[in-house]
């Protein structure tokens, strides 16, 4: 296979995303130091669902596509020390669809990944804790958890 499946697919996904993407989300390639587009590394943002403690904020993400994408899943990260039970201290998200050994399928696209992560924000999976503070608070003292999440929402507050 001489054609670069990764780049082709990313280009197509970009096209599709620009045509149609869920409200409040953004996803775009980063720029290299020489000003050209780096298709293999993206930044993205996920809005917290309205009516949840995550609302009125957009949470930033980095997406990097490995060489064998889409055979392997992209690496998606929140900023380090992001407060969520299923996010590792490094910002890596613990989600089955992002895991090659588990539920990753080459047909999963950026849109469904980001929607999946948005879903995860308010419905953490208590069975796969990835960091101690958020997980402890989530399972033991919901009040503290809500306070911390809201504080974080302030940090990533939408500019209206």
């Amino acid at each position: 296979m001489s054609r670069d499946l990764r780049t082709e697919r990313i280009q197509q996904e970009r096209k599709q995303w620009r045509k149609d993407h869920p409200f409040g989300f953004y996803a775009k390639p980063t720029k290299k130091s020489d000003g050209s587009l780096d298709l293999h590394n993206w930044t993205a943002g996920i809005p917290g669902k309205q009516g949840t403690i995550w609302e009125n904020a957009t949470y930033p993400l980095t997406i990097s596509f490995p060489e064998d994408y889409p055979a392997k899943p992209p690496k998606i990260k929140f900023p380090p020390a992001f407060y969520h039970p299923n996010v590792y201290p490094s910002g890596t998200i613990c989600l089955s669809i992002l895991n090659e050994e588990q539920d990753w399928r080459p047909a999963i696209n950026i849109k469904s990944l980001l929607l999946g992560i948005q879903e995860l924000l308010d419905t953490p999976n208590p069975n796969s804790p990835a960091q101690e503070p958020a997980w402890k608070a989530f399972s033991k003292s919901p009040e503290e958890y809500q306070k911390k999440v809201k504080l974080q929402a302030q940090q990533y507050k939408d500019k209206v």
């Binding site: 064998d68 055979a71 669809i97 399928r105 080459p106 047909a107 999963i108 469904s112």
Partner: peptide, 20 residues
């Protein structure tokens, strides 16, 4: 390509690649 990748990692009873 999908099947070859799965084969390479030793998977058996490979699921359909459809995801959504």
């Amino acid at each position: 390509q999908y099947l070859k990748n799965k084969n390479e990692s030793g998977s058996m009873a490979i699921e359909c690649p459809f995801a959504d």
